[in-house]
Amino acid sequence: MAEVFFRLAKSPLAMFGLAFILLLVFVAIFADVLAPYPFQKQNLMHSFETPSASFLLGTDEFGRDILSRLIYGARVSLQVGFIAVGIALVVGGMLGALSGYYGGWIDNAIMRVMDVLLSIPQTLLAIAIAAALGPGLFNLMIAVGISAVPTYARIVRGSVLSIRGMEFIEAAKAVGSSDTRIILRHIIPNSMAPIIVQSTLGVASAILNAAGLSFIGLGIQPPYPEWGAMLSGGRQYIRDYPHLTLYPGLAIMLTILALNFLGDGLRDALDPKLKR
């Protein structure tokens, strides 16, 4: 583990990514303390203000402080990103592990269903689920999470398959370990590398997907400050007040960029073959 971190630390981009994500987590946790104003506080006397000393990133059409809304928005985005990936990981991971470990008809049944789901583009699947469930934070997480399940199922299955045939699994079976024990103690820990990488990149795509859903009105509803919803709200004022859309977009992009850098760095750090 220490060795992996050491290799990760050698990549400046990955370190930038890690630092940015940690900062974002800190901001999200302490949003109540860090935000200069409450996110829903309207002040029509100060609507559409450009950045100034009292409103560092300006205000929106209702005179709400954009910085404060971005800070609270970090909470929503990270929550959606991590919980959606959590859902996808648990459900997809379990399906993939069962499929890869038992093979035969179980494998066939699970993977054919996954094939069907994979033939619907992820964004589209998320839209379909979100449209059926209706808007809201919880539904958004479910929609984004479920739409990612097939990807994780496939990755976990692949990695379980490659490990299942190894000699140490045979040895564990020979000494009488149960299937559950073999899966939990031997197979899962040894197939973590690709899953960690995919999860990091997965959080990025979950945040992006969630922002997209909110942008078209299927995610978080106003007045809650979600970055995609903020972008969508500022869109009609883009000609006169571009700062309404500039900052939320920048927040999304930097977060995704940081996660992508970190994911790429992790991939290289966890796979010594790629390192020269």
């Binding site: 997209g212 942008f215 995609g228 972008l231 969508s232 859309t245 995704i256 992508n260």
Partner: peptide
């Protein structure tokens, strides 16, 4: 390329409108 991957298409679209149309 990494920035391109990280940019939400709806934001890039708005930026393009801002630059080339506005």
């Amino acid at each position: 390329a990494m920035i391109g991957l990280s940019m939400p298409v709806f934001w890039l679209g708005l930026l393009l409108i801002l630059l080339f149309s506005v």
